[in-house]
Design a protein around this nucleic acid. Structure first.
Lengths: 156, 156
DNA sequence: CACAACTTGGTTGTGTGCAATTCAAACGGG
DNA sequence: CCCGTTTGAATTGCACACAACCAAGTTGTG
């Protein structure tokens, strides 16, 4: 019952996501960084050198988004790209000189975000779990919508 | 404490929002509709004729996003735009012939979304409240970041 | 070896989002 | 009535997102 509520959840997600991106924009603008670019830096700071595809898995972005984004980041010295020698298909992405310098300069960002979320410490973890569950459910539903009836005999 | 959690909330929002958009894409693709376009139709179905600015308020989108979106929708007969006679600056947006027909054709969408959210009926309302609170907090923080100290004497 | 299937990343095209600017229409004080 | 201001949309420029497609490299199989 109350199917309208579920579409409201989706719109609230949509609006909240843009609001958070907006705050990141104001925080990162002095460095000419965007939120997805900041996410790449955080991933590299925390996990170290990554391939393009492992970055895509972490951030849930495909090459159509990452390729031009990484090209701009490389031009700005934020990251360094290199083709792996034994498999020429694979491109590794590592922190560049400017990206390393930003780690200290952007150390204030997480606390500014924390101050702005308006979420209690305990509630945050529950919220994250709920959101990850929604994400997983949505991905599953979208996948099964492309292949409507995988359990029954395959059509034709 | 635990500032990392708050950045995790933001990323979860970002990922969940794109996952929901993804599901809407698979549902709306047969009609060539995007999620923001669907939101415009829902707003017009529910609230009736709107001005561009009132649509922007409802969906929290500005004219830079809405103008080209509404132009494409008008070309497809989804909406009808008309300049208001008393005030030639105002443009009203109403449901077009094809937009009216879609109301019945898309009646299945909300229930498909509801089935996919993976959220219990009761939890949905709490989640919406939390998300709206986050949205409001983020907007407030972004606004105060632009004008760091509005309480003190105005500069200059 | 030959060769088809698969993997990896890049490119193209379309549609948002949003800041900044522009422009016309309306408004308002003098 | 006139000029400066405000307001509502549209336009411009840039950066995502993502589907669809492509090229190069790798791997499994006979």
């Amino acid at each position: 019952m109350a199917v309208v509520t579920d579409e409201m959840v989706c719109f609230s997600l949509y609006a909240a996501s843009r609001a958070t991106t907006q705050l990141y924009r104001t925080l990162l603008d002095p460095w000419g960084l965007t939120y997805p670019q900041y996410l790449v830096l955080v991933a590299l700071w925390r996990e170290g050198e990554q391939t393009v595809s492992s970055l895509g898995e972490l951030l849930q972005l495909d090459s159509g988004t990452l390729s031009p984004l990484l090209r701009r980041m490389e031009q700005g010295g934020l990251v360094v790209k290199e083709r792996r020698s034994h498999d020429e298909r694979v491109v590794t992405v590592a922190i560049g000189p400017r990206g390393a310098a930003l780690r200290a300069e952007l150390a204030h960002v997480p606390s500014r975000i924390a101050a702005a979320t308006g979420v209690q410490a305990g509630d945050g973890e529950a919220l994250i779990r709920t959101l990850q569950q929604v994400t997983a459910s949505m991905h599953a539903a979208a996948a099964s919508a492309h292949a409507p009836d995988a359990t029954a005999a395959s059509p034709h």
